[in-house]
Amino acid sequence: MNIDLTAMPTSLDAGHFGLAILALLFFILFITKKSAPKETLTSQTAKPDTEVPAPKAPAKLKDANPDAALQLLTLLQQEARLVDFLNEDLGDYADADIGAAARVVHEGGQKVLKEYFTLAPVREEEEESRITLAEGFNATEVRLTGNVVGQAPFTGTLIHRGWKATQVKLPKLAEGHDAKVIAAAEVEL
């Protein structure tokens, strides 16, 4: 393999300047990361009895219950034919046909939503209006975007009101029921 040394850049263009900065950044990160545990280690050995931030415990992840998900799919298929609809290739059909089918999906889907979930907007204000978030707002309920700097209270434009389920009431499942069957095949005799 031949390396043509003359192909090496002789002047510094913007791209390579960027790369250089990135390399530097990684280097700094590498150094700090390496030194950080060492630091805690030394402080731990020096003063073992004082309170120190404990090593971050690994977050507990819970498995979403597949039965509930399958059940919801079953309901959406039963009432709204959602699985049928999503498995169709829309390309071959006119918008009028798709519209007729969309009504089935919408009507049934709405029924499922109303029947089993009580939904409420997270924020009651009008969208596109200015709102102020006080300190200690719930970051799960409200997501900050854009120019996220400074301290609360934050003032910004409400883009989407959000949704939250205030109540979920899914049907109970019989013990012996196989939830994996989303729609039984139907045979008319």
Partner: peptide, 18 residues
């Protein structure tokens, strides 16, 4: 109010009565 009757089979498009 539209009345739509979906097909009985798994094909929804083209065979839904409206």
């Amino acid at each position: 109010v539209p009345i739509v009757v979906p097909s009985r089979g798994s094909k929804l498009l083209g065979s839904t009565l409206r």
